[in-house]
Amino acid sequence: MEHLFQVLFTGLSQGGIYALVGIGFSLVNMSTRVLNLAQGSYALIGGFVFLTLASRFGLPAWLAMLIGVALAAILGVLTERIVTLRVRPWRPISHDMAILTTLALVVVCEGTAFLIWGSDTHRGPALQPGVVNVFGAIIIRQSIWMLVATLVISLGLQFLLTHTWLGRAMRACAQNPLTASLLGVNTRRVGAIAFGLSAAIGALAGMLVSPITWLDYQIGGEFMLKGILAYLLGGEMAVAGPLVGGLILGLVENGFLLLPGTVGGLLKQVVPMALLILVLVWRPQGLLVTRRQA
């Protein structure tokens, strides 16, 4: 029983990380209609910068985090600039070229990480080491922090989207970019902010998870996959969709670790994909969205 609770909690906290990557993915997609595959790479870069600054250079964790998040945000804005280099008001973005560019970026990040940090796995410092005992279940403090961060960020973003001008502008862009620009919204700037913000969130996810899932140079692709799955499972809703999708994904994955031997590990890889296919057959629009958006 305690074991089950422990696994479920770990699943939720892990799922929270997936949700954060997925949220970044959906923020960018809703504001600019670009599928940013580099979303996982921000987690990679953010995580590595954090653990290097904190472990090797001995910076305090909060400062290392701040620097990592800022760097990722800059990287995010840079991504937007690169993707929209040739966009003009009368010449819209080519979505194929945009997605390919972000894929190139994934590999550039991977290559850079390989050059700097090599092919070994690295472990980040925990915000608060140790475990706590909840109803007999042993829970790592870090995973509590992960879950708290996920919920706080989700609520914060939801507030941003519904109660601030920036959020309204983002939603206007999501609905109809042309109308948004006729209302005076600088759609380019809103897009850049969305990229920067989601990169920062991605980086934070990478840092939070680094003490638990060790990082290596290929982890960007892994994060990207989980983010995409969370996003597709939940449906095209800015925050709630990827959040629910990510949490479910985390639960399902960790649930299979209860099984003995390699079967669990294998199922952990296959079942999310099977789940996605089931969801898309049953509810093509995702779990949360009631009406299909064309």
């Binding site: 390919l100 560019t101 894929l103 190139a104 994934v106 590999v107 550039v108 991977e110 290559g111």
Partner: peptide, 16 residues
Amino acid sequence: TGKILFSGVLFAIIIY
């Protein structure tokens, strides 16, 4: 070393 980075950069350049 550098191989992955090289092909990533090359790809970005070609796409652009």
